[in-house]
Amino acid sequence: MAEPMIKTENLWYSYNDQEPGRGEMQPVLRGVDLTIERGEYVAILGHNGSGKSTFAKLLNLILEPTSGKIYIDGRDITAEAMTEQDVFDLRRKVGMVFQNPDNQLVATVVEEDVAFGPENLGIPAEEIRTRVDMALDMVGMREYARHEPHRLSGGQKQRVAIAGIIAMMPECMIFDESTAMLDPLGRREVVDTIEMLHREKGITVLTITHHMNEAARADRIVVIDDGRVLMDGTPEQVFSQPDVLLAAGLDVPQSAALVHGLRKQGIDLPGCVGSVEECIATIVRAYTSV
C-alpha cells in the first residue's frame, strides 16, 4: 500500500519560538492529526487566525513545528537528519502558491519566470525548455510566454505562478488563499486550473480558502478551528452542519443556506447539500413529491 502524501501527528506550533520577546502567545496549532492520501483534492477552511495558513507553511518547512511529526510520502521531514538538500527536494515535491500574485513573480518575462524553479534544480537547458512550454500550456498561458508578468491580470499572474511550480514537477500543490485577491473571472481561471491539475494530472491538491463555493468543489473539506481539526468530511457532510460552521466563523454556500433555511420553516427536504446541483435536486424532488 502506498504511503500517504501527507501525514501529521500531534502537530503543535507556537510563534513564541520564532519571535521571542513578544510575550506569551497561545499556540497556533494544538495537536493536528491529519492524513491526506495521494491524489486527493482537499479544501482547508478556517477563520482568520485559525492556524490553517500556519499548517500549510509547515508542510514544506517554511516554518518548523514546535513539536509533532510530519511525514511527506512516508518520509519524516521533522527528523534531525534532514539536510539542506532534503529540504530542497521536499519543496520540489510539495509546491506552494501564495495569495499575492505580485510577490511571487521574479523575472521580467513570463517564460523566464516559469524557468526559474527548474534552473535552480540544475536541469539541462533543453529539458527546461520542454518543461516551461508544457507548464504554460497546462495553465493556458503559452501565448503570453514572451509577455512582461507585471502587465498581466491578477488571474493570469497567478496562473504563471502556478506554471512556475508545475515546471518543477511537484507531486503535491498547496494553494494558500491563492484566489483571495482576484476578481470573479480571475478566481474562476485559477480554480479551474487547480481542478484540472487534480483531475488530469493526479496531483494532490490542498487549497486554503475563505470562499465556501470554492471549497464545495473539493472532494474533502477539513475545517481547522482554534488550532485543531474541527470537521473533516465530504462537502456534503460539512455543509450539512451550518451551526458548527457558523460557530467557527465560517458559513455555508448560499445554495446550502437556502435548503437549511427551508428546513427551518418546517419543510421536509430530505437529500444532499454538498453542491449547487445537489441543492437544486433536493428542492425539486421535494417540491414534485408534495
Partner: peptide, 27 residues
C-alpha cells in the same frame, strides 16, 4: 449564487419569483 439557483429552479418548473438576490428572499 442564490440568483442563479433561483433561475435554475424556474427552469425546472418551480415558479420562484424573479429578481431574487438574497437567501432570505429565496426562502
Amino acid at each position: 449564487e442564490i440568483s442563479s439557483v433561483c433561475s435554475r429552479l424556474r427552469a425546472q418548473g418551480i415558479e420562484v419569483g424573479e429578481g431574487i438576490f438574497t437567501v432570505e428572499e429565496a426562502i
